[in-house]
Design a protein around this nucleic acid. Structure first.
Lengths: 184, 184
DNA sequence: GTCTATATTCCGATAGAC
DNA sequence: GTCTATCGGAATATAGAC
């Protein structure tokens, strides 16, 4: 992938997280890169094509991380996962799910399906992490691991949304108590 | 408030929850009400004015509910609160915070301040409910009640976002486990 | 209070030169 | 791969008649 194309995707990712998919425009990308909007359309004919590339990049990042963390104890894996959210919080970002889920009904069918895939991938990873971690006595929690995974994911997702409105202390308080509850 | 004006606000509320604030247009309101967009602008000169009315209505609804539930045991109050979210889930809605927080940076300063106020109001109510409920032995949980309130709010908020993508089982699983954790 | 009509701006997208 | 130029459409918003 060309350098310009990578910059476009990276900027689009940032814009989705800060302004939302429907609120950013090609001008928000072409201006900082000092090109014309036609240049963006050359790389990504439609806005949906651009959104798809952002989602594909995020999915690859998820796979890379889970592979990279595979040998770590599960509690450390979860702390790494929280660290990704912490970094986004510090950068004023929300997560892609938190940004795209409210806009879901306005997205192209392709993007809807990809968002679905992303949600399923995250849920699957988190469920496995919690299940294995409990088996290895590194977590303690009641109930089904899949249900617990949904709780943890929703905590982290909304911690970034709430931090937007209430300040970054929301993320700190949520992530700290979350890990303590699990005994991590 | 005139009947038309109320219909406009009610429809705007629905549109914010389904499509997002930046994705809906005056046409989405004027068409179903069979009026022209100028009629909407007569009642609400700017889109921000309309958004403010939706937020004010939600704040009044929050105050009404908390007053109406004041005499109930705290666990029943929380179940009532979850019921509001359940209803939204069944209607394909997300909550106002879940919709407006991702768009926060694109909102007018007035709306930003009102969203902040709404978040603070919800957090305050939930903190009090949990704190009193624990004192009265109707909840059991560890740590600060304010931290726990943030966790519960983020669970409910994201349960609607995830239900958009993964289907309504996400809400059911999250709300059920959430109440069980609290011993409610 | 609602209408017609329009101003203004912006957006996504495309054609064709270079 | 990027440019100029432009199309077609949609959005918010306003002026003035009724």
């Amino acid at each position: 992938m060309s350098e310009t194309k990578e910059k476009i995707v990276s900027l689009a990712d940032k814009l989705i997280r800060v302004k939302g998919f429907n609120a950013f425009s090609y001008k928000d990308i072409s201006d900082p890169l000092q090109v014309k909007n036609a240049a963006i359309h050359y790389h990504f004919p439609t806005k949906s094509d651009l959104g798809m590339e952002v989602l594909d990049k995020e999915l690859r990042s998820l796979e890379e991380n889970s592979a990279k963390w595979k040998k770590l104890p599960e509690d450390e894996q979860l702390i790494k996962f929280c660290g990704v959210f912490r970094k986004h919080c510090n950068n004023g970002n929300v997560c892609l799910m938190g940004s795209l889920a409210p806009d879901y009904e306005t997205l192209s069918p392709e993007m809807q399906q990809k968002v679905q895939q992303m949600a399923a991938t995250i849920l699957e990873w988190m469920t496995g992490c919690l299940e294995q971690g409990r088996k290895h006595k590194r977590f303690r929690f009641k109930g089904d691991a899949g249900d617990r995974a949904l709780l943890v994911i929703s905590n982290l997702q909304s911690s970034l949304l709430l931090s937007r409105v209430l300040g970054p202390s929301a993320f700190n308080r949520i992530s700290r108590q979350l890990l303590e509850d699990l005994g991590a």
